[in-house]
């Protein structure tokens, strides 16, 4: 297994290299000019040209790409064109809010979705099943920002229980940290709950048809024990897979959620960087997201071994 883990980690290197080349090329050919944005609306074309030169944007593609790769190999992701701050510093400033949001959303979604999926499978074909699945379809269909606005209107503006916006670091205390994350996590988790609940239901339906479940029932085991201990464990592989895939959804959803709730996270940093053509920041963020995604896929693959000892690599 160790050899497999090492192999997989080494396999991320070419993946990241391809991502790096792709991102750099895409940004190079994309229209837009950070120098024009920096110079402002009153700037003359001569001003813009001069700023382009000082930023090194007038140099050939290969020179810029080579320099960028060389710097990355030395753990230097460059400096933001706009803020003048190192990309690593900008990412470090924003990583806690985004990871907090993703972790809370993930926990919230799993805690809600898995029981819903299990219950729906157990009561397949009944009103409960249909109600849960109708909720799942609704969850898929409603955009994150709509859920966000509705939650903010009810729980912040009308009931005044929670803040509308912002983020408090965990170092300020668990409740202040949590208070700012409840609404965004609920909004972002909506679609995720729908996804996990549907997959859990499908996987559980298959497992519940197995002979060993009938045997367990014949032995007189309680339904709760059968469902959550015996059946769920064997249905876990597709559920874990979809949780892993869903991390990509979370990253995409975080961009919208962070804007709606004014959370200073990586999602907003990404949007700001794209709109201003802040190339070093975009490149750094895409590499980070790609790395996280590759890492999560690796963790999912490793989880298969734990969940199903029959799987060997």
């Amino acid at each position: 297994m160790l050899a497999y883990v090492v192999r997989r980690i080494l396999a991320t290197v070419p993946v990241m290299a391809i991502v790096a080349l792709f991102v750099f090329s895409l940004l190079y050919i994309a229209p837009g000019d950070p120098a024009a944005v920096i110079a402002g609306d009153q700037a003359t074309p001569q001003d813009i040209e001069r700023i382009r030169a000082t930023l090194g944007l007038d140099r050939p593609f290969l020179v810029r790409f080579g320099e960028w790769v060389w710097n990355i190999l030395h753990a230097d992701f460059g400096t933001s064109i706009f803020t003048g701050l190192p990309v690593t510093q900008l990412i470090a400033q924003r990583i806690e809010p985004t990871f907090s949001l993703m972790i809370v959303t993930l926990i919230f979604a799993i805690v809600v979705a898995v029981p819903i999926g299990v219950l729906a499978a157990w009561k397949a074909g009944t009103v409960i099943d249909r109600a849960f699945m109708a909720f799942a379809v609704f969850g898929f269909s409603v955009p994150v920002f709509v859920v966000g606005y509705v939650l903010a209107y009810i729980f912040a503006l009308q009931l005044e229980w929670l803040p509308v916006q912002g983020y408090t670091p965990i170092s300020a205390g668990i409740w202040p940290w949590m208070k700012n994350l409840i609404l965004p996590a609920a909004a972002l988790g909506f679609i995720y709950i729908a996804l996990i609940a549907r997959i859990t239901r499908t996987a559980m339906l298959e497992v519940l048809q197995q002979d060993y479940i009938k045997t367990a029932r014949a032995k007189g085991l309680g339904e709760g024990r059968i469902l959550f201990l015996h059946a769920l464990k064997n249905a876990a592989v597709p559920i874990v897979t979809v949780i892993g895939i869903g991390v990509a959804l979370l990253i995409g959803g975080a961009v919208v959620t962070e804007s709606v709730f004014a959370i200073p996270g990586l999602g907003r940093l990404t949007i700001d960087a794209i709109l201003r053509r802040d190339y070093p920041v975009i490149q750094g963020l895409v590499l980070l997201f790609s790395f996280v995604y590759v890492l999560i896929n690796l963790m999912v693959d490793l989880a298969y071994i734990v969940l199903d000892p029959r799987i060997r690599y």
Partner: peptide, 18 residues
């Protein structure tokens, strides 16, 4: 200075006294 890219959020924050 609190940067809020979303106008609806800024409106809600002002109404809420945030």
């Amino acid at each position: 200075w609190i940067i809020m890219p979303d106008p609806a959020t800024a409106a809600a924050a002002l109404q809420n006294g945030e």
